[in-house]
Simulated scan of single mutants.
Amino acid sequence: MSRLDLARTLSYNPILFTRSLKNCVIPCYTFLRSVVLSDFKVVNIWKRHSWIFGAILSKNVIPNIGLLRELGLPQSSITLLVTYHAEIVMRKPESFSELVGEVEQLGFDPQKSSFVHAMHALYGKKTTWRRNEEAYRRWGWSDNDILSAFRLCPLCMIKSEKKIMETMDFLVNKMGWKLGKLAKFPYVFLYSLEKRIIPRCSVVRVLLLKGLMKEDKLSLATIITTSEKYFLNMFVTRYLDRVPQLSNVYQGKAKYSLIL
């Protein structure tokens, strides 16, 4: 742990100075190290959730992790939850058990990391969830669309309202994508609008309007999730002889509407 990290954390959470090193801090470190299996990850927990080092883990954390192990969550998922969402495992066992039960009822597989992502999304259900639910509804998504999208990609329910609205506006109003396609591929909301979605979709829009591609042959997943090398080869380089400005569209130096 760097001196800077140590100083920054203790200055924001000086109550740690009042905790016993022998009876609290060291046992907490030892337990967390056994759970996340890495000193590097323990340092991440220190920087993100330092208050856990002053807690009595036997009250909440240890029984909650025990429940996850009984359910069959793999070590990688438990490490993910504890490292990045320690506030969830700090919940009282009764409340934690209710959250886990809700995720199970929605059909998430404990063997997959999406189980942890669903826990994260539902943890803030009273605030972030409801706000985003209303945002999706304003774009015409039904309750079934929202639930289906959540099951496919739980993290789509924790993005900011601004992110959702701007992504929807670009894909639906400017690019002409149908809402049904977006509901079937909610992963799109995890990607940067400026760095990935706009450049790639603008290129594809040019190809569609010039008749060089057919929309029914395209998958939003293929456009958004493929590596940059693959995208350039499939959607830019191979068409440069017919659309020389395609590189400029991809780089944001030319708007697709100006070259049609």
Score class of each variant (00 low, 15 high):
Y250R: 06
L193A: 01
G107P: 06
R91Y: 13
R242L: 14
R151D: 00
C24R: 11
G180H: 08
P244N: 02
Y187W: 07
T225H: 00
K229A: 06
Y12G: 11
K253A: 02
L68C: 05
N13G: 01
L71N: 04
C201N: 03
G140E: 11
Y123L: 04
R205G: 01
S11R: 15
T222L: 04
K214P: 00
D39T: 09
P244Q: 04
Y187F: 13
N132Y: 09
I62N: 12
L67C: 00
G72Q: 04
R69T: 09
L68Q: 05
L258T: 15
E70G: 00
L182K: 06
S2T: 15
E104I: 13
Y191L: 12
P93F: 06
I78M: 06
G124P: 03
R151A: 03
P199N: 01
I224Y: 01
T79E: 14
L182Y: 04
F185D: 05
V100Y: 13
S50L: 08
G107L: 09
L260A: 05
V61Y: 09
E87Q: 15
M90T: 12
L207W: 02
L80G: 01
V243C: 05
D241P: 05
V249P: 02
K22Y: 13
E166T: 12
Q245W: 02
S11Q: 13
V103G: 09
V36K: 02
L32H: 03
A118Y: 06
E70D: 11
K125M: 10
Y84T: 07
V82D: 00
C156P: 02
N13D: 09
N64G: 08
I88S: 05
A135I: 06
L147Y: 03
Y12A: 10
E102S: 14
Q111C: 01
F231M: 00
L106Q: 10
R131P: 00
M90F: 03
I197D: 04
F96G: 00
T237H: 14
Q245T: 04
C153I: 01
N44F: 09
L80N: 09
E166Y: 09
L10I: 09
K47L: 10
S247A: 07
G176P: 11
A118K: 07
L220A: 00
L21I: 15
I26N: 11
K174Q: 15
L80T: 03
S58K: 15
W129I: 13
S247Y: 04
I164G: 04
F17D: 10
K181N: 14
F150A: 11
I78L: 03
N13E: 11
M119E: 10
E134L: 15
K47I: 11
A254V: 15
E70H: 08
L190F: 08
I45W: 00
G176W: 02
G252I: 02
L209G: 13
F17V: 10
V35G: 02
L73E: 05
S11F: 13
I88L: 02
K47E: 14
L209R: 13
V25N: 06
S160L: 06
A118C: 07
G66C: 10
N144V: 14
I45Q: 04
S227M: 03
S2A: 08
P154M: 10
L193E: 01
